[in-house]
Computed example of a mutant assay.
Amino acid sequence: MTARPTLLASGFLLVLAGCGDPAPTPPAGGPVPESASTPAAPVAAVEPAANEGTEPSTDTACAVEIEGNDLMQFNRDAIAVPATCERFTITLRHTGQMPVATMGHNVVITRESDMPAVAADGVGAGLDAGYLKPGDDRILAHSDLVGGGAITSVTFPSAKLKEGGPYVFFCSFPGHAPMMNGRIALE
């Protein structure tokens, strides 16, 4: 009977080994490692689309907060952008504890038909580029990639959602897009 738990533990360790070198997990109730609680440094190669030089919207009707966790889940599967908003802000709160290199999350907005290719091309771009191909014009907007305990946001012109949809939001970290995605629409 001890072979089964040992086999399961070995399999779990192999899965973790494939994810890179994760930061040590704090003891229950202990502090979160610094790398998991501070936002990722801005990436020079990939700037958040349509967010340069703008402040996040202060109009709560033109903003939404979503959460992503260590189980590769967003807490919502749809975002309605009011047609009265010139600009819209999505704030992502990573409620997990894992560091960005192990379980990073971001919010990327594309046409639904472009999502698989954008996610695939992002894998090749790597962590330093936020798993987004630099200069990819299929990306309408995106936030920075952050680890557990961090918050990021992206503000973009709502007019980007007027033609050519349907549109989706998703996380570009490798393997996350199939589970961490939802519809975003101008209403």
Rank of each mutant, 00 (worst) to 15 (best):
A83F: 07
E112G: 07
D70M: 07
N106L: 08
E112I: 00
C85Y: 04
G53A: 13
P48K: 02
T60C: 07
V81D: 02
A40N: 02
T54K: 14
G53T: 10
R76Y: 03
A63C: 09
L71Y: 08
I79Q: 01
E67Q: 13
A63P: 03
C85P: 01
A83T: 13
M72Y: 12
T102W: 12
F88V: 03
G122Y: 04
G68H: 07
S35D: 15
T102C: 08
E52R: 08
A117Q: 15
Q73T: 09
M103R: 04
A61S: 09
M103C: 08
H105L: 14
V81H: 02
N51P: 03
T91R: 03
A61H: 10
G104S: 03
A40W: 04
H94C: 01
V118G: 04
T58E: 14
G126W: 12
S113I: 14
E112H: 06
I90E: 02
L92C: 02
V118S: 00
G68F: 09
H105C: 11
V107F: 14
T54A: 13
V118R: 04
N75T: 10
E67T: 04
D77W: 09
V81G: 05
N69C: 10
V100R: 02
V107R: 07
I90N: 06
H105P: 10
A117N: 10
D121G: 08
V118A: 02
T60R: 13
M72D: 14
C62G: 04
E55H: 08
T95K: 07
G126N: 05
A63M: 09
T110H: 10
V81F: 04
P42Q: 10
G68P: 02
R93A: 13
T95M: 05
V118L: 03
A36M: 12
V100I: 14
A101F: 07
R76N: 00
T102L: 07
M72N: 09
F88R: 00
T58N: 11
N69D: 15
G104C: 05
A120L: 11
H105N: 09
A44V: 00
A36Q: 08
E55F: 06
T38G: 12
P39R: 05
A40I: 06
D70G: 15
R111P: 01
G104V: 01
F74T: 11
P42S: 06
H105F: 09
M115K: 01
D59K: 05
I109R: 00
G104A: 10
H94N: 07
P33Q: 00
A83D: 15
T95H: 02
T110R: 04
I109Q: 01
E67F: 10
D59L: 09
L71D: 14
M103W: 14
A80N: 14
V43M: 15
T84P: 02
V107G: 11
A120I: 08
A125V: 11
G124P: 00
A120D: 14
G126V: 15
A63Q: 13
E34N: 07
A125G: 08
A44K: 00
D70Y: 12
L71E: 11
D70N: 15
D121L: 01
S113A: 15
G122N: 01
